[in-house]
Amino acid sequence: MLYGFTFLVIFQLLGEVLSRGLHLPVPGPVLGMLLLVAWAVIKRGVDDRVGRVCSGLLRYMALLFVPAGVGLMLLGPLLRDEGWAMLAVLVLSTIITLLVAGLTLHRLLRRRHPSADEFS
């Protein structure tokens, strides 16, 4: 387990160093993720020991947002002032995103494969 964890932390550090060193707009951990995808493509997969640590971390990923999410308690006044506007933006923008993504892919698959069901 320690091997896999160390492996991930090295990619995380690499991402952090590159992000800050080159003043990239991409956050360090995200850059680390992209580097690890590139590594997996080159190596045609990742070591089993790394894979096991990844699935362990991802299994409890939701728990890891909680400490930051509790910070909402500091935003009371903001929520009172802009809460309804926030809700409207959230609802409408999510509907638009779903429809645009779904309809675009639907049209593209139709054009290539008149019966798109062959892939399901």
Binding site: F5, L8, V9, F11, Q12, G15, G28, P29, V30, G32, M33, L34, L36, V37, W39, A40, V41, G45, V46, V50, G51, V53, C54, S55, L57, L58, M61, L63, L64, F65, V66, P67, A68, V70, G71
Partner: peptide, 24 residues
């Protein structure tokens, strides 16, 4: 609260890197 619970928050960065595996 956060200074106590931040260990989980730190792990978030590492878990983000781990997203590479399902993506691949």
């Amino acid at each position: 609260y956060f200074s106590g619970a931040q260990l989980f928050h730190w792990l978030l960065g590492t878990a983000t890197v781990a997203l590479a595996v399902p993506l691949f």
